[in-house]
Amino acid sequence: MESGSKSINKKLMMSTETTPKHREFHPHILPLSVYIGVGSALFILTGVTVAASFVDIGGVGNLILALLIASIKGSLVALFFMHLLYDNKLYALFFCVSLIMLTAFIVITMFDTMRRDGIYEQRSSPIQISADIYKNMQKHEE
């Protein structure tokens, strides 16, 4: 843990050290083939994810598969289109921290929402008859 944070800090220091010379601005240009390749991969994966949704794997299998494909697509966009693969790794670090925080938020909240059976009889109550929603429905039927 200690050594890990040290090495990150070292990297951060390296990345922001002002180099002795006045720095000219050099754009980092990727070949056209990268964009076309990544773009076609994204198109194909969109087709794959739609096709996969028609196959019933059962349980949460479809959910996991869909999220997996989405994550591959997302990584392609982030790494190539957003240049995370080539840029200063600091940007990738911040982006990853936001994803970790988001995951922690969802998972820790679900520690509560998925384990309430000890207190409540039902996980979530169905709509009560008095709720406005049923009044609207009656209007719709009329």
Partner: peptide, 14 residues
């Protein structure tokens, strides 16, 4: 990128 996640989560999971 956000839409890449929204599309399967809302439209495809069935």
């Amino acid at each position: 990128l956000i839409w890449i996640y929204l599309f399967p989560l809302l439209y495809l999971i069935g």
